[in-house]
Amino acid sequence: MKELNPFILHSSLDIVEDIQWKTSQLYLKTIDNFYGYYISGFLTSGNIKFLLIHETKNEESIRQFFNDLNDLYVKVLLNPFYKVNDAITSPVFDLKVKGFAKKYL
C-alpha cells in the first residue's frame, strides 16, 4: 500500500482541480477516498496544493495542521533562493512538518 501512496495523491489532483473553483475556502476537507484511505486537500493562495493521505477522519486537527503548514510554507517562499514549484530540500522544514504531524495528527 505504501508504494501506492504517491500515486493515489497524484491522482487526487484531478479532484482538487475540479473542486477548487467551487469553494472559497482554502481548506478543501476530505476530497477523495481510496479503499479506506482518505485524502484531504489544502490550497495555498499561490495555487500550490497540499495533500494528505490518512486513515481516520479528523477534520479539525487536519485543518490546524494545514494552517500551520501553510505558515511554514510562506516562510519558505520568503527565501530568495527558493523558486516556486521546486522541491523543498530544507531539512529544518522536514523536521518541522514532522513536528506538526506529531502535534495534530
Binding site: 500515486f7 493515489i8 497524484h10 491522482s11 489532483l13 484531478d14 482541480e17 475540479d18 473542486i19 477548487q20 473553483w21
Partner: peptide, 10 residues
C-alpha cells in the same frame, strides 16, 4: 479540473 487522466493513470 475537467479531466480525470491522473485517476486513469492510477
Amino acid at each position: 479540473g475537467f479531466t480525470n487522466n491522473r485517476k486513469a493513470a492510477l
